[in-house]
């Protein structure tokens, strides 16, 4: 009787562990999917900014952008609560330490903050932009 009960407890623990594993796996899939959306949005935004005139680039500081969803919907990620413009993405443009008036150089960051599978997701990509000579 004791051995039987022990065996059944072990079986229940095994089933519980498998259940937790499946749930965690699905949760991680969701997290990974959201991260891919954020990464794609940041990459596309930095590419889009390459077409912006260098003189107007600093004016884009703080501008938001939407993250396209996996089905092509306009809003793929939900912004954090209290987000100022209601968009998960944000652009930051700061002059580089070596920036000169005659040769401006900017550190451009595309950042996405969202809530979804995690309580708060965060992804950012950064690049340098300057006038091509």
């Amino acid at each position: 009787m004791v051995e039987l009960l022990t065996g059944m407890v072990i079986a229940v623990l095994l089933i519980g562990a498998a259940l937790v594993g499946v749930t965690q796996h699905q949760s991680q899939r969701r997290v990974h999917g959201e991260q891919i959306l954020a990464m794609s949005a940041c990459r596309n935004m930095l590419e889009t900014l390459r077409s912006v005139d260098m003189a107007t680039l600093p004016t884009l500081e703080g501008q938001g952008f939407e993250v396209i969803g996996q089905n092509g919907e306009a809003r793929g990620l939900t912004p954090l609560q209290g987000d100022a413009d209601g968009m998960a993405g944000e652009i930051h443009v700061t002059p580089h330490a070596r920036s000169q008036t005659s040769n401006p150089l900017y550190v451009v960051t595309a950042r996405v903050r969202w809530r979804g599978a995690t309580r708060g997701g965060n992804f950012a990509m950064q690049t340098l932009m300057g006038e091509r000579r």
């Binding site: 590419e47 089905n71 092509g72």
Partner: peptide
């Protein structure tokens, strides 16, 4: 389930 991948490219 349908899904879309978008890539933006700057042709310089």
């Amino acid at each position: 389930q349908r899904f879309v991948a978008n890539e933006v490219l700057y042709l310089r």
